[in-house]
Design a protein around this nucleic acid. Structure first.
Length: 286
DNA sequence: ATGGTTGCGAAGCAA
């Protein structure tokens, strides 16, 4: 059950007494596969302090709920919802604009691939943090499970959300939507993340009513969100764009910025993924 | 050249 809440973000608001209207800061939604929150928490704290997301979706926290650092997030102003049951997978949402109506998993047997989805209403937006199964290889049972999981996500959205309302589906999709989203398509023929069935399954999710806003705002620009730790892949530009923020049209039409923070892939003990950020402007006459 | 790196947990497995 979701509340589909319509709680507005009310910073700014009416400017009274003849003062200049204060432009509302856009809503900033980010997603980041941190590849272990325990290993990455210092980097996450640093990043949050610098970029001040209103909502931050996390994937691969790699811990059970009982060790999730909810108090630490609270101390820096964020409510959190976490869905994790062990040392693998694990997803979370951190929000400083409210967090209600938490749902962990799809509530069905199809979630047996692990803790890979948590949803909550943050301000006016129904937010989903997803970690799509990797698939391992095209001939693996895990690949079939990946396709089934994406199909289940599509059904779940149809069952629980309205594409005419503000909805965001954020996370590590483990699919590069297009050949331009990988450093060398020829190198990856026969590999997961780029296969036709995976792209079709992702396309079905988007066809529910979601827009890939980072790509929408950047044309054919080279954009990657993940680089293998091995072989100097980051330095060599061998990346893929597999971390996405998908939003419904009402949000896409208000999107005033969208980017991938490559800086977060540098420095001491980085995740192999970079954060993806989108900014949603206030509703207005335009 | 079936490599390479990181995180899990304490030997390989997963990514």
């Amino acid at each position: 059950m979701t509340d589909g809440g319509a709680v507005g973000v009310t910073d700014g608001g009416e400017a009274g007494g003849g003062a200049e209207p204060v432009a509302a800061r856009p809503l900033r939604i980010a997603t980041w596969n941190v590849n272990s929150l325990r290993a990455r928490m210092p980097r996450v704290e640093e990043w949050v302090a610098e970029h001040e997301p209103d909502v931050l979706c996390l994937q691969e926290t790699k811990q059970p709920d009982r060790t999730f650092p909810a108090e630490l997030f609270a101390s820096i102003g964020y409510e959190t919802a976490h869905h994790g049951d062990g040392q693998w997978n694990g997803v979370a949402i951190a929000s400083r604009i409210g967090l209600v109506g938490v749902q962990r998993g799809f509530g069905s047997a199809e979630d047996s691939e692990g803790c890979r989805m948590v949803a909550a209403t943050c301000g006016e937006v129904r937010v989903h943090s997803v970690y799509v199964p990797n698939g391992r290889s095209l001939d693996s049972a895990h690949y079939a499970a990946k396709l089934a999981w994406l199909a289940r996500l599509r059904c779940f959205l149809g069952e629980t959300c309205d594409p005419a309302r503000p909805v965001a589906v954020c996370g590590d999709f483990n699919v590069a939507p297009h050949d331009r989203d990988v450093w060398d398509p020829a190198e990856l023929v026969g590999c997961t993340h780029v296969s036709g069935p995976e792209r079709a399954a992702l396309g079905d999710v988007e066809a529910w009513g979601l827009v890939d806003v980072v790509r929408a705002l950047h044309g054919d620009e080279e954009l990657y969100s993940w680089w293998d730790y091995r072989g100097g892949a980051f330095h060599r530009g061998h990346g893929m764009r597999i971390d996405l923020v998908l939003v419904t049209r009402v949000l896409a039409d208000r999107c005033v910025g969208a980017w991938i923070d490559r800086e977060a892939r540098k420095g001491v003990k980085p995740s192999d993924h970079a954060p993806v950020v989108v900014e949603i402007g206030a509703v207005g006459p335009g």
